[in-house]
Amino acid sequence: MLTDAELERYSRQIMLFGRSGQERLRETTAFIAGAGGLGSVVAIYMAAAGFGCIRIADCDTVDVSNLNRQVLHRTIDVGRDKTESALQTLKDLNPTIDIQPVQERLDEHSIEGLLRDSDLIMDAMDNFETRYLLNRAALRHNIPLFHGAISGFHGQATTVLPGRSACLRCLFPRALPPSTFPALGPTCGVIGSIQVNEALKFVLGKGELLTNRLLLWDGLASSMDELACERRPACEHCRDY
């Protein structure tokens, strides 16, 4: 049962999906991989919407050059662990949910512990090697992966449902080389918001997910396109699922 305080806090979205939908959100544990540009937007909107448990992992500390887009962090946070700063912002925003910050590098050793009891994975990473780890973990645990990535004015998003849609490796068979990419707040805002919107629809069972579709945002043209994609039978990640 939702409390009176929760009913009031979420009243404008309960209009959309009822108390039962809100309860479903409260029962959901989301794992957010990264507390950077995308992770900031994803975490803030998930906390605000009332996802009951948010586990957010990052291994970096806040740098002043992060602040043009990483809205979880403030100038006063420079030098702090990103997850500590994230915890503060998210707790201030919504003290009724469980926020679990994990200051740890995401790798093949840590991922199982980080994912424990998670119902879904939010990809807010900045490199494809770690995204492939998330992809494999999503397939292994049979939980959805909500992918987003940005560079400058451009962004992309897709949703992976293990065994039912193209996985991240089907879409992107080869990793991009790591690079320092230009990053802009509004691009993170657009793509991170789309990722949370997808997670909401998944939990609520509403609408059409971005499965087998890669959504492309072009902030210079203010336009979106989509590329259709399909499972690759020979995909080294998902052929056995």
Partner: peptide
Amino acid sequence: AVFPPVSGG
């Protein structure tokens, strides 16, 4: 169609 994926976050 030709497309370079982006990878930042």
